[in-house]
Write a protein that binds this DNA or RNA. Structure first.
Lengths: 150, 150
DNA sequence: GGAAATACGTCAGCCATATTGACATATTTT
DNA sequence: AAAATATGTCAATATGGCTGACGTATTTCC
């Protein structure tokens, strides 16, 4: 349990420092991340993923839009929807933020042995609420083989 | 990476809810946790672990002391030190907070197979800053065999 | 075609937790 | 005695959550 705390603390530290220079926070990173991985994400889906209120999301998302990191697109089938996309600028920032994290995960998995990826992913998934697991699996693209990405 | 977010989110959720009822927050839990596992912890050590400023710690620690969850003891060899301990009330609360978390981890490890514990711990440790690892190993009591606890 | 439900946005105020900077006190070290 | 250390505290500020209320555009349903 303590390990989980330390790992999360250090995992988050590098991007946090970069974000701070831009006047952003961790919340901005999370939003960029999920939009980046799921282009065309609806606002309501993002709220469900993050488990925050729309008011909380609102302020942070507004900053990202105003400063040109995120774009909104009107839904094709439902014009009430605002489908979220990263701009090239947003993609570039996300990339920069996550390079150190990806490297860190890759190193940790290498260090822990050949089938660490699978075991690690399975265990983390086991920590997620059982009711949520299916959705998380879908979101993370953990298909049959559970490969690619971290 | 997304998995890490979801796992951490759900791992934290139960104690958070209990704490909220007492008017406490996540910060109180972290402090109880580390004092609980390391009785006699010094304030400066706690600050280094949590990576927060003493002002931030101050308020939260004060509440825990004032409400009878934590005691301070004068250092034997150095009377400037305030060694931290849980009161019985503090131990009782910590226990209640962590029962669901321990169960959750146990289930996740079971689900992920026989040597999940070792692989999981190794991977998490790999995520920690290399410079910090030694200290974390010592703190978490991950001796040779890496057994007991989570 | 009009009412209700949905998707989203926004205003205002509150709380928890973190920050920096400055300063106080007791104690130990040099 | 002076300096360094361990801790505590005051004040101001920022971030990122929250609740509640309300507004608007659009879709759905009777």
């Amino acid at each position: 349990m303590e390990l989980l705390f330390f790992a999360y603390r250090d995992f988050i530290a590098e991007p946090d420092a970069m974000l701070a220079e831009l006047g952003f926070g961790r919340a901005h990173h999370r939003i960029l991340h999920f939009i980046g991985r799921h282009p065309g994400l609806r606002v309501s889906e993002l709220l469900a993923i993050l488990r925050i209120t729309k008011q909380s999301l609102g302020r942070v998302l507004r900053e990202l839009i105003d400063r040109g990191y995120v774009m909104q697109e009107e839904g094709a089938s439902d014009r009430r929807q605002r489908l979220l996309h990263l701009t090239p600028k947003g993609r570039e920032l996300l990339e920069r933020l996550e390079v150190p994290q990806i490297a860190r995960v890759a190193m940790a998995l290498k260090r822990a042995g050949p089938d660490a990826r699978k075991t690690f992913a399975e265990t983390l998934l086991g920590l997620v609420d059982p009711k949520e697991r299916q959705r998380v699996v879908a979101l993370c693209g953990l298909g049959a083989g559970a490969d690619a990405e971290e």
